[in-house]
């Protein structure tokens, strides 16, 4: 019963049709309320739709199913202007940070005016990446350097 709905959700995710994807997560959770993947997907849909308050509330209400969503939690906090919380969430990760976590941490550090550490992250991110955002990342690095000095 859930498989076709998950297939639909996957399709809407691929086409970035977040309104429809959100509706599909609600259908899944209406049938079975403790579907971890549907709960996590719902949060991401809400975030894509700029509903950060609701996304954050959904995380709080489903603490067990969302305990490993460090990036998403920190990004919600960042967008809700809870910058210290975002910093603490990222710093609570007990392993090496993924690239996206480092990218977010660099932005958080900039907002916290911790330019020294921010510049260090950008230096490493610029060096170790070759994706399509590299020139934008370089611009962030330069902006952080210029603001620091």
């Amino acid at each position: 019963q859930l498989r076709p709905l998950y297939a639909e959700l996957q399709k809407y995710g691929q086409t970035q049709d977040w309104d429809r994807a959100l509706k599909t997560t609600r259908k899944i959770l209406g049938i079975s309320s403790n579907e971890k993947k549907a709960t996590q997907s719902k949060i991401i849909c809400l975030m894509q739709l700029d509903k950060f308050d609701e996304a954050y509330g959904t995380m709080t209400k489903n603490a067990n199913d969302t305990a490993d969503l460090f990036f998403e939690r920190a990004y919600c906090e960042y967008r809700l202007n809870r910058i210290e919380d975002a910093y603490n969430t990222l710093k609570s990760i007990e392993r090496d940070l993924s690239e996206r976590e480092q990218e977010l941490l660099a932005q958080v550090l900039f907002k916290l005016e911790k330019y020294n550490e921010c510049v260090d992250y950008y230096r490493s991110l610029v060096k170790n990446n070759a994706d399509e955002y590299q020139s934008t990342r370089q611009a962030n690095f330069i902006a952080a350097l210029a603001t620091w000095k």
Binding site: Y6, L9, Q10, S41, M47, Y75, Q107, F110, A143, T147
Partner: peptide
């Protein structure tokens, strides 16, 4: 103070659903 480009947002994707479909 300048505002940085938000590159983190580009990394926001659904979890893998391969085990559910």
């Amino acid at each position: 103070k300048p505002v940085l480009f938000d590159l983190a947002l580009n990394h926001l994707t659904l979890p893998s659903l391969d085990d559910k479909v």
